[in-house]
Design a protein around this nucleic acid. Structure first.
Lengths: 361, 361
DNA sequence: ATTAGCACTCATTGAGGGTTAGTGCTAATA
DNA sequence: TATTAGCACTAACCCTCAATGAGTGCTAAT
């Protein structure tokens, strides 16, 4: 491991692995140039576009240092330099929190579901589509986690002798339905009573809480002898368990295929598979819900192999009470971070606002 | 327009524009070769692979005739021949109704939702995904038309002072929900009565019928003075109107992009747009519901410009009572028709079987 | 009616050569 | 001592050109 010493500007004082201001500027400039052109940046080109006057030779020296420090690589001896993932990390860290965003884009994003009475899923679908259209990359959004969302109402509908359709409406405005089976057939009237009972008892509780409370009720022996209660517990257990794993909406996958960065590589196939499986990307979105504001995963930082040529930019959205989910953009590591970050950030904000307004409170 | 006369085999008798048996064989062979190799077929190659002994020169003569009749084209003078859309039409017409299908594939398709209690949408999603995986093309399926499906149950849920969540469960097993607005706030109890009234009156009626009956009730002045009835009619009108336009599920679009046939052309972008808009493809699926069994749209036969490089193979699925929707494959005109037709046909059959079993009757 | 033979066409491939954008190193310079 | 000019060197890119090969259409022989 080579440890290169670079002058930090102050005469006589030297630090290991610290770049001076000029080196920062050069690196910054290389990255922005590369993001624009997608072509290796040479010393000559750079000396023209960079603000200060600096000869190609000097730039070459600096570039050589940056390369040794792992910020740049050369594809072959006589080619320009290309930023590494480390360089992009440096770059995004140096960006001020969400860069400004053109008014025009703002207005476009704001159009996401100003229509009254849209369901949450529809709003999310529209948002992810809009974001894909604006960014020209693939976009994903996770639907509100069932576990944290609060019950608005439950309905039990008898659809055949042994099947009951359960409909759960959450405060966040999501409707979920599933079918459960019973051995002993119940009348619709009885089911209505059971549903009413569950509504009374669990309205405004989170799914997580409900599951726990039901579990507690089950261990309490006394409840067994109360017919309605016993059925309510038994059906409730089935109704609230295993609320299907968090869903994810995807849009604009096509954009990636048409993007020259991916077109060249043969790794397209595996990238698509990653999207098909969903679970891995879902995990990243879940992760990102922990962070406040925009969060960025760059290339190699992704656990998932197939995503290592990509960067993910995510932001969580929420209603009054909870963080509900996360929206994100998947693109090449050399994407225009400033632009995309501001879009993701703003979209998440609009999403939060819209969903809060539509909440059933 | 040249009218070529070809010997039909019987000495001395000649018909206009009728191919003799040998010409049929040659055309058939060219098409099957081309489907396999995707490369222009030359006379030499063909004379080797075709069953009967026929010199390249003879084949050249026949090919020349076929070209004049519009079954083959040459990209340039010294290239082999390529089948036209007309040739594919000839080919599929000559195929016996659904070709046989390997047991292995059969079993795979049969796995589509043997899981109990799946919702129709989930079954369709699984079927379309399976078909995309097997065919390696893009696949689409239209969800059951709301208009023809019969009401199993309606629920009205008050979610805020001015919003009511309507849930419609159809016999076909589809759950639809939407939000309607009211000016005058009603209690949940009252909504329950209204729902009960609507259930009594309209259960087993098709959406189409219900809309008509409601319309009739509205013009009957006497109903205005009955409070429950008046509300039921008013809410019912909103609840049953404009059941969102038929949905369509898509899977495997990526397969098209990775397919060499499309990769070459620059028309990929417009094809994607066609999928994004959905409406045009939806229309074709709707069309195809009229036909019994498999139906095939080849290249130029498609009204939609963007689809003219493609063939669509569709088959409708149904339950006991109605044709519900249509499932289809979109691929290049040079697809392996035998293989795809059998798969689409079998998938539609399995789909019909599964959905009939899951129907709420 | 069929086929062998021949001249011709055109896409594809690979080699050679010039051009260009880039590098690293060294010596001169401010 | 930091910066820069100069120079030799590299490798991708592009152009041209010739050889190759799969294919054709036409004509004459079978």
């Amino acid at each position: 491991m080579v440890k290169k010493v670079i002058d930090n500007g102050k005469k006589g004082v030297r630090y290991n692995l610290v770049l001076n201001e000029r080196a920062h500027l050069v690196l910054h400039s290389i990255i922005e140039n590369y993001i624009q052109s997608s072509e290796p940046i040479g010393s000559r080109t750079l000396s023209k576009t960079i603000g200060i006057t600096l000869s190609p030779a000097t730039i070459r020296n600096i570039m050589s240092d940056l390369a040794e420090l792992g910020y740049l690589i050369q594809n072959h001896t006589s080619a320009g330099r290309v930023p590494t993932d480390k360089a992009y990390r440096f770059y995004v860290n140096s960006l001020a929190s969400p860069p400004s965003i053109p008014q025009q884009i703002k207005e476009k994003i704001s159009q996401v579901s100003n229509e009254q009475g849209s369901q949450v899923e529809a709003i999310l679908a529209e948002a992810v589509r809009m974001l894909a259209e604006l960014t020209k990359f693939a976009c994903v959004v996770s639907t509100p986690k069932a576990a944290v969302s609060r019950l608005q109402r439950i309905e039990l509908i008898k659809i055949s002798e042994d099947r009951i359709l359960v409909i759960l409406v959450t405060k966040a405005g999501v409707v979920r339905d599933k079918i459960i089976f019973t051995k002993d057939s119940q009348s619709q009237e009885f089911l209505n009573s059971v549903a009413e009972f569950l509504n009374d008892k669990f309205k405004n509780h989170s799914m997580q809480e409900i599951r726990e409370e039901i579990h507690e009720s089950m261990v309490d022996d006394r409840n067994r002898y109360h017919d309605l209660l016993a059925h309510a517990i038994r059906l409730g257990k089935k109704a609230f368990e295993l609320n299907q794993p968090g869903e994810m909406l995807i849009d604009g996958q096509m954009n990636l295929l048409l993007d020259s960065h991916f077109h060249e590589q043969s790794s397209v196939r595996s990238l698509i598979d990653a999207f098909d499986q969903k679970s891995a990307i879902m995990k990243i979105l879940d992760d990102s819900m922990k962070y406040k504001g925009v969060h960025i995963f760059i290339g190699i930082e992704n656990d998932l192999k197939q995503l290592q040529g990509c960067s993910l930019i995510t932001a969580s959205y929420r209603n009054n009470q909870n963080v509900l989910g996360s929206i994100g953009v998947v693109g090449p590591t050399s994407m225009d971070y400033k632009r995309i970050i501001s879009m993701v950030d703003y979209t998440a904000k609009i999403l939060s606002k819209t969903i809060t307004e539509q909440s059933y409170d």
